[in-house]
Write a protein that binds this DNA or RNA. Structure first.
Lengths: 377, 377
DNA sequence: CTGTTTTATTCATAACCTGAACAAATGATC
DNA sequence: GATCATTTGTTCAGGTTATGAATAAAACAG
């Protein structure tokens, strides 16, 4: 970003920006563009010199822990992706200490094999209600324990600051960071995949509820006596829309094999979608019911929060064509048209690896703030 | 509030507060307490001298427009209540121009008979989705028209700035202004009365959705084929809990007379509640079903927003004893216990006249900002 | 009457941002 | 290719705002 643009974003005069950036450049925190790329073409005037964060300020590891998978990503302080990989590893039946040992070991091994010796912080996205201030997983559908002090546990093992975030919030953050339109006003990101989660942002900042967590919108009960959900309740939004729910119901319809690793693979889900597209009426009904629930869910969001943007994202968007007719019918039937019209609905195809991007971005931001604090001292 | 307290609230040093308040005292905007009230008792040290807004800076009229009633209140710039009254007047079948004529006439008459010649602004609370920035009623369950430019229409007639707010938001604001606990964290105020509305506050500031309106939570559909709602939909929260809904169903049970003025009076509602308390099983069931819906509604709020405080307010709290058993059962059955435990639930008995207090407070605040702008210029 | 406690004020100072003028770097034009 | 227009970035003096430290003021305690 060039100095003028920074000024416009912050509502500051160019003079101030120049002043502040000069000292940051001196300290090596920022680096100026090598310029002379020319080929700028038709713009008159002195060309902008963009400023970047130096890439030598340390790197950050972003981690997503799923039901049976760990996604890892290494990013340097300039925001460039340095390495990423994922590991199949069931985490379901581990005790608290064991879980943290496995995570710490995996992260250390990943950093080493990526040749990163300057890891400054670790960002972790996980399912459930996360106390983002104290780094505690207050409740999770996949962990047996509750009030798990994940940040301090990993911090003790790795000796680095740990940032924890709900996975849907992390994805919502990544998506809004990529699309500046979504950073103005209120944006509700509904992530459909392994589960259903909501990340809600006001003017680009993640909404925080009590204990500084996000939302457990996926476990809102839509149908009093609906299907079983893994949270223990019945009729939750998730119990219709999550991969595990769709696969469970598909198994009853056509006796396909149960997933080998507890949760269905992407291939297994694709196969359900393909067969439904090919015309299998029972599977088609499955997606019709899911679409209806999605419409009801978005309807609740509109009537309650009246967001400017609603984003439907996550692997579940793979079946959006099958969901759409019943989704739109349900949405229209339950919202006041004048209010419905105020919300723009976006479908963003995104896989789970966007999650690590989200937590990395947040961890980098925290790092920046730390830098600011260091400089102040 | 004393200077020290102002400093604590604003996170400023006493020196700065002293400096700023001195100039405001000079200009006559603030007035210092006459002190020497003594009787302070056990506190050592120099006694605080509280500062108040002068009462000579003009007054504000707060108005609530209901289905068949107009509530009015006159408050001076010191925040003291000067006059209030209410008028029975059906507003339902008026056209836009006619409605604004009636309102303007009523407000002028009220100000005159109260001897207020220094009315500086008017705050108006009304049902429906209100664009608080442009002063437009985008949608309302009681008005035929949509996108009614109420603020500019009344502004033209009265020649004064008009502030419009959703009625539930106005009541929520008044309640949080009275109880400082509710101004920290996130507070969801569910107002049950003529209709059902939600005012949601984050750190004491009203949440604004798209077009700067609030929430139409009362028209979230809880039951797919539930009872008819006045919004045109079916199974809305309001269609179970609002006075008109309870009275409509009570009429079917015991053939009581229809309300004379479209909406049931407080007496009529009291009589239903009394008979249910006395043991009428069908009426008792009515409140049981309503309590269940209230529990589901609060459950959605907890799972979606995870507020620190939930306030149930409005005339509907008159039957809280009847609602409570099914309310708590429904709430517990649909929320994750760990999340349920994070929200404190308060029941605040409040009648509709608290609404005018809410809009007056907001209008006064706007006036203060205007003052600040004037001083700056 | 002196000491303690809390509130409020004074004042020099530091931090921060800004407008205005100016320098720099490019495209456009004749 | 010299000059002008246009946009970016810098320098600098000055204004606003908040602050810490010292001090005064107003009460109670013993």
């Amino acid at each position: 970003m060039a100095r003028v643009e920074i000024g416009q974003h912050l509502g500051m005069s160019p003079a101030s920006v120049s002043d502040l950036t000069a000292s940051l450049l001196d300290e090596g925190i920022l680096v100026a563009e090598e310029a002379a790329d020319s080929a700028s073409g038709l713009i008159r005037g002195r060309p902008k010199t963009r400023l970047y964060f130096a890439e030598t300020l340390g790197s950050v590891v972003g981690v997503w822990t799923g039901f049976n998978r760990i996604e890892l990503r290494l990013v340097d302080s300039a925001g460039r992706n340095r390495a990423s990989r994922h590991i199949e590893r069931p985490l379901r039946n581990l005790g608290a200490e064991e879980l943290m040992d496995v995570l710490a070991g995996t992260i250390t091994a990943f950093a080493e094999e990526s040749g990163a010796h300057d890891v400054k912080a670790i960002g972790l996205a996980c399912q459930g209600y996360v106390d983002t201030k104290d780094g505690i997983v207050a409740w999770s559908p996949v962990l047996g324990t509750r009030d798990l002090p994940l940040a301090s546990g990993l911090g003790d093992r790795l000796g680095k600051p740990i940032l924890i975030e709900n996975d849907a919030s992390a994805m919502a953050f990544a998506i809004t960071q990529r699309n500046s339109d979504l950073r103005s006003g209120r944006t509700a990101c509904l992530m459909v995949g392994d589960g259903v989660g909501l990340g809600f942002l006001i003017q680009g900042e993640l909404y925080r509820g009590a204990r500084f967590g996000g939302s457990e919108f996926g476990h809102v009960r839509l149908r009093r006596s609906g299907p079983q959900c893994r949270c223990g309740g019945r009729g939750c939004i998730e119990a219709y829309l999550a991969d595990y729910a769709l696969h469970r119901d598909a198994q009853l319809i056509d006796h396909r094999p149960a997933p080998t690793l507890l949760l269905p693979s992407e291939d297994a889900m694709e196969s359900i979608v393909e067969q439904a597209r090919a015309g299998d009426p029972a599977l088609h009904n499955l997606f019709q019911a899911a679409g209806e629930v999605l419409g009801d869910a978005v309807g609740i969001l509109i009537q309650t929060l009246e967001p400017d943007h609603i984003v439907i994202c996550g692997p579940g968007t793979r079946a959006m064509d099958l969901l759409r007719p019943s989704f739109e019918a349900a949405l229209d039937s339950q919202t006041i048209p004048e209010l419905r019209a105020l919300a723009a609905i976006h479908v963003v195809e995104s896989s789970m690896d966007l999650l690590t991007e989200g937590v990395v971005m947040q961890a980098l931001r925290e790092l920046d703030l730390d830098l600011a604090r260091l400089r102040a001292a």
